[in-house]
Write a protein that binds this DNA or RNA. Structure first.
Length: 453
RNA sequence: UGCUCAGUCGGAUAAUGAGUAGUCCGCCCGCCUGUUAAGCGGGAUGGUGCUGGUGCGAAUCCAGCCUGAGCAGCCA
């Protein structure tokens, strides 16, 4: 029976006859015995194995180089030396798979850029092991957060027939050979289809039946974006709440970010320690700050005023009716408020058709949550629930209402005020781990020109 | 997609005004009474992203390409 290293290291008393399996991180030889640092990915820490000369299997010790896989039977005993509480005195070791001498992972640190080129091996590094353990736990935290609040998990389709928001390049899905645009009506679905860029519109239909729902799944954008925070394939979380206004939407978004930060601090402490030490020395402090302090809320017009009066030279102009640029968002969250900021009520001309028009006739109920270091992590809105107004919005944005007949039906049959938001899971992970590049928080990044693994 | 920068052994890096491409880690051998990315001594292998150009001679200069990074747009 195999024992995971995390369980062995958490022992409260010495244990006879354990079996562990893992990969050698390093070997240190002394006269008459050797130390092996063994890691099986179950936790950040390695298990120190002591192998005396003459231990069955020790004749293979010379081949137990960094990267080799082994089985070790032994007794878990208190370590007589500083550095670790427990160590395993081997009674038998077995070499499972040797690592060739050119094993690219060395004991010393590597750059994330190099590790990206060996995406199949990088989970064996301390950093990426920690990142992907954290990713797994946070995925659970996302479900817990919503399930605790009676949200229903909805699997919205990955293949979709509508380029719903009318924005964003989409990946075409087809079974046709040759020119796929010739006769889309002969294609598999009888119409042009794409990989989804958002489950929101479908999510709204379920919110207008089950009240509170969320989606959590892969999302695709064919944008030729080359930045540290864009990927062509990423995981998005989209809650949608019936009988909810912008106020409730902002409250949920803020509560969500706080809950995720709290969860990371409590449940990912060991891995967070690595991030705090080697990736971002201010991480723990920032996460605690986010948990403890209320988010600042500021209307778009006020944000514009703050930026105008800041007396700071921006590369891009600050003017009502223009989008906030990354530099503006960063100024607000990192310099002016020094805390997460929720900006709301944006001019209608820079936001999509489905957002609810405010009484001023100029702004819509949009909200963006900005966090230090990342910028926009949440984008959401109260939806336009009035049929006439929604049709008017579509005209304003030059969309054809007939393409959205089922979406409009929601406003015909028992319409309700409702609201929701979209949150990029990878951006959340960047915020929680301090990792600066989205390609380093997703197992196999899909970016322009990159689908090797 | 635009602007900027960068590509040197398996990894991290050095090099002159163009003149034998050096070092550390790793690997191999030996030593070391318990090590902590162990330490000490010795050794071998191995590299200038690609294509072309200028030169007696190119890692170095020039052109194009490829790849990566940073910033920006699009956004989550």
């Amino acid at each position: 029976m195999r024992t995971l290293i995390k369980h062995a290291l958490a022992a409260t008393e010495p244990t006879e006859s354990l079996t562990v399996k893992g990969w050698v991180r390093t070997r240190r030889d002394s006269k008459g015995f050797s130390f092996l640092e063994l890691n099986d990915g179950s936790c950040l820490a390695n298990l120190q194995v002591v192998v005396d000369a003459g231990t069955p299997g020790s004749e293979h010790l010379p081949h137990l180089t960094t990267g080799a896989s082994v089985t070790v039977d032994g007794n878990l005993v208190p370590s007589p030396a500083a550095g670790q509480k427990w160590e395993l005195r081997a009674t038998r070791i077995e070499l499972i798979g040797q690592a060739e001498a050119n094993y690219p992972l060395q004991k010393k640190g590597h750059t994330p850029e190099f590790l990206r080129t060996i995406a199949h091996l990088r989970p064996r590094s301390n950093l990426f092991g920690a990142v992907f353990r954290t990713r797994s736990r946070l995925a659970l935290a996302v479900h817990q957060f919503f399930q605790d609040r009676d949200f229903v998990y909805v699997h919205t389709p990955i293949i979709t027939g509508s380029d719903c928001e009318g924005a964003g390049e989409m990946f075409r899905v087809t079974a046709l050979k040759g020119n796929i645009d010739d006769k889309p009506q002969t294609d598999f679905f009888g119409r042009p289809t794409y990989l989804t860029v958002s489950g929101q519109l479908e999510g709204e239909t379920f919110a207008c039946a089950l009240s509170n729902i969320y989606t959590f799944g892969p999302t695709f954008r064919a944008e030729n974006s080359n930045t540290a925070r864009h990927a062509a394939e990423f995981w998005m979380i989209e809650p949608e709440m019936a009988f909810c206004d912008l106020e409730g939407d902002m409250a949920l978004g803020e509560e969500f970010i706080k809950a995720m930060a709290r969860f990371a601090l409590e449940k990912c402490a060991e891995d967070l320690g690595l991030f705090n030490k080697f990736v971002d020395k201010g991480l723990n402090e920032r996460l605690k700050f986010v948990v403890e302090r209320p988010f600042v809320r500021v209307p778009y017009t006020e944000a514009i005023e703050i930026l105008t009066k800041a007396g700071k030279k921006f590369e891009f102009p600050v003017e009502y009716g223009l989008n906030l640029q990354s530099e503006h968002e960063r100024f607000l969250t990192e310099e002016h408020f020094k805390s997460p900021v929720t900006v709301f009520n944006y001019p209608r001309e820079i936001k999509p058709f489905y957002m609810r028009l405010n009484d001023d006739g100029k702004t819509v109920t949009a909200m963006d949550v900005l966090v230090p270091g990342i910028g926009e992590v949440i984008g959401g809105a109260q939806r336009e629930e009035r049929l006439d107004q929604l049709q008017e919005n579509m005209k304003y944005h030059k969309l054809k209402p007939e393409d959205y007949w089922w979406y409009l039906d929601l406003r015909r049959y028992g319409t309700v005020p409702h609201a929701g938001f979209g949150l990029g899971f990878e951006r959340l992970l960047m915020f929680l781990t301090g990792v600066q590049n989205i390609r380093d928080v997703i197992p196999f990044a899909r970016t322009p020109g990159n689908a090797e693994f």
